[in-house]
Write a protein that binds this DNA or RNA. Structure first.
Lengths: 138, 138
DNA sequence: TTCGTATTGTACTAATTGTATCATTGTAAT
DNA sequence: ATTACAATGATACAATTAGTACAATACGAA
């Protein structure tokens, strides 16, 4: 279950850089549901070995995908598909997703013993701090 | 009584090292009275087993907490929450822990593309729903 | 008490993973 | 031919987690 094959077809004569092909195909597989949020991708070395390319080439592809927030690479841990809502997701799904995220946050905060008032105030403060990063106090 | 469950929620995709998550959550639970001075924490092996991580990862978290004088680890005995809770530092720690939890939530929501306004509104709605569980709509 | 053993944390090392930097190669423009 | 640049490869590094052996303590049995 932890292992997923991730079959990529590279064309070494296409003129397209290897790393671009990797990027494109991972994006495609994510868009088609072959890859799902949370999935762990092969390590740069494992995928490189399978594709018969240098692992830096895979790392480059991963870095691009990471910058696009499509995957999350973590040194010493591995790389994972991020939990981004598909672009075609409806606003309702979007709301539900935020709702679930929020509910988890609130439940956790309540479980830790914080009052609703404290939670509300802290969220307000932190959101304001996001908008105005001038104040650096913690 | 010697046994306390110590429920920790690890997110293996969060980018935060496991040991950091353990440290943060234990700090939070202490700040909020879920853990109290004198409480015995699970052994490194027991907690590691439950969290499905290596016991050295737990040991690392314990060592950090020990250096912060939050817990006292005693070889051959176990690990305990420090008896002397800095009275004024406790409230400070409490605020910080809610702050960190909130910041993580906000960052995640922003990363998912939600606006500050959406986040603020959803938190408000969910908190209200907590207080008045009469309304069932989602 | 004294000893044996289980339990507990510690220390050191190894393995796995991604990162950073520079070298090499190949191709196209000049 | 030379130069420039992009793509790829090689090497060394850093971060995280896992593996193994060990030391300190507790506790019961002899």
């Amino acid at each position: 279950m932890t292992e997923k094959k991730l079959t990529l077809n590279l064309d070494f004569h296409s003129g397209l850089p290897i790393y671009t092909q990797i990027v494109n195909q991972i994006q495609s597989q994510l868009a088609n549901g072959i890859l799902k949020p949370g999935d762990q991708l092969p390590t740069v070395r494992a995928l490189a070995s399978e594709l018969r390319v240098n692992f830096n080439t895979v790392a480059r592809a991963y870095r691009i995908l990471d910058e696009e927030r499509i995957i999350s690479t973590q040194q010493g841990r591995g790389t994972y598909i991020t939990e981004i809502p598909p672009p075609e997701a409806s606003e309702k799904l979007r709301r539900e997703s935020l709702g679930e995220l929020t509910q988890r946050f609130i439940n956790e905060a309540l479980r830790l013993g914080f009052s609703e008032r404290e939670i509300s105030q802290t969220v307000k403060d932190r959101l304001k701090a996001c908008k105005e990063p001038s104040s650096q106090e913690n």
